[in-house]
Design a protein around this nucleic acid. Structure first.
Lengths: 198, 198
DNA sequence: TACCAGACTTGATTCAGGTCAAGGTGATGG
DNA sequence: CCATCACCTTGACCTGAATCAAGTCTGGTA
């Protein structure tokens, strides 16, 4: 199943019949308020599961971020599979647990961190998604999502995200080679900021 | 296993050996930043599972809220149990999924809602935890947690929570019979505010 | 090479919620 | 019956991030 850029393939609140696995590209998950305010609750990429949080209806919407491919599994079929392979059930629970732990960290970010700390956390998060969490030397990052998405992910406005990236650049913590391509010059400093220790 | 009021029984970051079920009383889960800022990521009560989000170390701390009783299950024992009763694994996943959906809603609250909307959401949440989500007539609520905890749960300060409750009272949406005892006089109005539709 | 549209940046101003600082309240014990 | 302490409320003021408003950059097109 292929989804083109910006195409929505899960509608928040729609009855949940399927379960997805991202096989290629990237996807963003979000919830909306009636007046259009949006919270991006996560990004998913190759190998990630989608729809674990689904009961009878989806608790989130999902949209491709620059083209993505997915595998769709109807719930009924999944149930047959888990009955046949009980270890799959275990795997799914592990996946859900990992996601839960991530979300707790993100709740702390949204509830208690300053804008500067949020952006720093985001950079470090991207960084350890790609490479390990080695924070001792410069790292090149690719930010495949537009600033709007970063803002909606961090609970900020696009202007604030932009301003803080500029500030980090002026402070020589990062260099911005192009809109999507950023180098962390001092990852350990950014990591400190992310944890609220400046 | 009994835990007295305010007693901490899970240390954030400690190696996770156990899994808990709350059998009585209430418990709060939280994460801390190095400088003491706190985000309460959830409240748990009778029947709730704790530690689903645990991998090798706990992603959160936990503390009793006015005395609680718990059942402790070592991970190893759990594993033996799930091997014996595969349906338990399924049950755990369901629990984790439910929790995931709740957390997505909470991320939207923390990232995108105003203080007024957050407090309204909190009241409605408490309300539907006790009774159904019938929002048509006055409901009596018991808030067993101090204002500090409500504030840390909503990503606000205690002063803001207090001010907004007072405002709701002046607007005749609620009446405050005592610190812990609140009546929603117009639940449907509060519900509207919670969703950002005023 | 110049033009255009969409995305990003930057600046000026505003405001929601935080901070700081007094009070109030009510449960407990002397 | 009053003192004390912990928790809550209220007020005055401040500030970080939002909002409003121009620019600027980039990549695609002719």
């Amino acid at each position: 199943m292929t989804v083109t850029d910006g195409r929505s393939f899960i509608e928040e609140g729609a009855p949940a019949h399927d379960f997805f696995v991202v096989t290629g590209g990237r996807v963003k998950l979000f919830t909306l308020l009636p007046d259009g305010r949006r919270q991006i609750t996560g990004f998913a990429e190759g190998g990630d599961f989608l729809g674990l949080a689904a009961s009878t209806s989806y608790a989130f919407g999902a949209e491709a971020l620059g083209g993505a491919t997915l595998c769709r599994f109807p719930h009924a079929g999944m149930q047959r599979l888990t009955e046949r392979f009980p270890s799959l059930e275990h795997r799914l629970r592990e996946e859900a647990s990992r996601e839960l732990a991530l979300m707790q960290a993100r709740m702390t970010l949204l509830g208690r961190k300053t804008a500067r700390e949020r952006v720093a956390t985001f950079l470090i998060e991207r960084c350890s998604a790609l490479h390990g969490s080695d924070v001792s030397q410069p790292v090149e990052l690719d930010l495949p999502m537009p600033r709007t998405d970063i803002a909606d992910y961090l609970g900020l406005t696009i202007e604030t995200v932009s301003r803080i990236l500029s500030a980090f650049k002026k402070e020589k913590f990062i260099s911005i080679r192009s809109i999507t391509h950023i180098t962390l010059l001092m990852p350990e400093r950014i990591s400190m900021i992310a944890e609220g220790m400046e």
